[in-house]
């Protein structure tokens, strides 16, 4: 944690873990937010434009929560597993809900 203390240089493993967390928070966070936006747009029981609007409005809160969670979970491995699990569940849900809606290659 004390990155600036002592030799002011975190060890290599620590640095790698840090980079992993940043990548996981940014990439994973965006992926979860994008998939949930798409899934909610397709499934919310509202008129089409309302579902899209509501899902898009919520997406930034979802992205921020995932990023904060990635940094809050003490083990990077657990954090990665949680994010990957969410991506798989949301992706499967989207495939089930919107598969027929999507023309060739429109998925996020």
């Amino acid at each position: 944690m004390n990155v600036t203390k002592g030799s002011a240089r975190p060890r290599l493993a620590e640095a790698a873990g840090l980079v992993g967390r940043v990548v996981l928070a940014a990439g994973g966070g965006y992926a979860v937010a994008a998939l949930s936006t798409a899934l909610l747009s397709a499934t919310l029981p509202l008129p089409r434009s309302e579902a899209v609007t509501a899902a898009t409005l919520a997406s930034f809160a979802i992205l921020a929560s995932v990023a904060v969670l990635v940094f809050a979970i003490s083990s990077l491995r657990h954090a990665a597993a949680a994010v990957l699990g969410a991506i798989l569940v949301l992706g499967a849900g989207l495939w089930l809900a919107a598969g027929p809606l999507l023309s060739a290659g429109g998925a996020p």
């Binding site: 937010a33 994008a34 998939l35 936006t37 798409a38 909610l40 747009s41 397709a42 089409r48 579902a51 899209v52 609007t53 899902a55 898009t56 409005l57 997406s59 930034f60 809160a61 989207l94 919107a98 809606l101 999507l102 023309s103 429109g106 998925a107 996020p108």
Partner: peptide, 23 residues
């Protein structure tokens, strides 16, 4: 901060429109 993101929401998070309106 949140409303600022919302002003350009469809640029940052276009996937709802992609799915429901084909973009």
């Amino acid at each position: 901060t949140y409303t600022g993101l919302v002003t350009l929401a469809l640029m940052y998070m276009p996937w709802g429109v992609t799915v429901a309106y084909e973009g």
